[in-house]
Design a protein around this nucleic acid. Sequence first.
DNA 1: TGTACATCAGTGAACGCGCGTTCACTGATGTAC
DNA 2: TGTACATCAGTGAACGCGCGTTCACTGATGTAC
Lengths: 247, 247
Amino acid sequence: MAAVGRTRARRGDGDLLRGELLRVAEELLVEAGDSSGVTLRGVAERAGVTTPSVYLHFADKAALVDAVCLSVWHRLGRRMDEAAADAPDPFDGLRRRGMAYVRFGLDHPVHYRVLMMQPPQPAATGGAAAVAARDCFAHLLDAVAACVRVGVFRGEPEPLALSLWAAVHGATSLLISKPNFPWPDDLDGFVDGCVRMAGMGAAVLSRLAVGEHLPHAHRLAGELDTLVAGLAWSSDEPTTDENGELA
Amino acid sequence: MAAVGRTRARRGDGDLLRGELLRVAEELLVEAGDSSGVTLRGVAERAGVTTPSVYLHFADKAALVDAVCLSVWHRLGRRMDEAAADAPDPFDGLRRRGMAYVRFGLDHPVHYRVLMMQPPQPAATGGAAAVAARDCFAHLLDAVAACVRVGVFRGEPEPLALSLWAAVHGATSLLISKPNFPWPDDLDGFVDGCVRMAGMGAAVLSRLAVGEHLPHAHRLAGELDTLVAGLAWSSDEPTTDENGELA
DNA sequence: TGTACATCAGTGAACGCGCGTTCACTGATGTAC
DNA sequence: TGTACATCAGTGAACGCGCGTTCACTGATGTAC
């Protein structure tokens, strides 16, 4: 097989090919829409190199796919932080982080699928997925803890963060898995609704004892009407930054 | 290949093998934990039959896997209805349905994965997944509509049902995909928390205009405290059944 | 300044596998006469 | 009651494919003397 379109790296520059393989593998991953559509032969061919060359830079196929997905994943934390930078308070910061999370997943559906929707691999492959999970949960946990500090959530942050993670993951993964389902036209608005719903639900629920039984639906409806009426005349209190400090 | 342990069906009883293939394929699907681990050779061998026999009853492998998954899926609707049968009101009925949904997914993780977490197949395979999606969404939509009727939700049921679906799907799929993540010990309690969170969030959010901006976190915290205090002295109003009718 | 040599990036050919699927066939079973 | 025949459930062998991975190798490049 002739290595078309690529001149061999000079000594010491072997890592050039590594980067090129990552780039090409990501291209193929996105095109195929699934990691099983990525082939070492395909990657090597598009990189202008023979198949065994891949093994000079990656232990095996799984290591290559993992490296591709993780390289994108690093940006998620920064995106969430950037999105929350201008938030007026920690609760809105959490909402913005949630939005950023879903958007990130929808922007990188194949990566999201590989890292977050795959069954846990037996060997080293599981590593990347576990790292990704810990990573994004940690970001949510921080944001939840800030909400607890400012009083909008009560109690332990961990279970709240897990629940919120499940909620944003649900929106992300369902939209990825069922793109042909009749979703609302205003997809961004829908996602925002999902995120707000989870945040508001967490705020209420963190005030209730576990399993506490609620009033019947008619009465609950009335109490909720009162709450929302109370929320309406809002907005003229001191501004605090995302840490809950007075500005 | 000797067909061990199986005597050929009598004339007119060809469908016996079909049932047996479904049974065996489900076994293998559960054992493998993934549809790519199911093999026509494997299915045929365990059924005591040669591989091409499968084609007498299923168009191809995808049709077999689909049939296996859908055969289980039919039970989901009944499970949700059963779970909600004793609910004191539609809102609690919705909660119980949500719990039943998640439990069903966790009881059949491989089926759930195939039908709800896979990328949409190009051809007929996508059919089963689309049917499953429509089916369980329809159940949730009914329950949400009942909540709207009784006033605990306001506005259009569709977007609410979609958001709630995303929430319960999120808990289900995340628990399936990340079984090794440090989840709370009380998994049932955690799932209940997720479901309640979504339901309560939907109730509050359905009263707010889209994108309506909330008071700052400190004030929001106070309003929520008031709400929950109001919920506490509850419980002595007339009992209604799941349709919101007076009992 | 020239040359032998170690190193490094990559090659080429092959191995071995398991898979879905096809196709011509067989032999038991019921039915029509 | 006996027999030819159509039907039906299933067989056996093979096709063709693409895959991940291995292994002995090559040839350019830099370096030590």
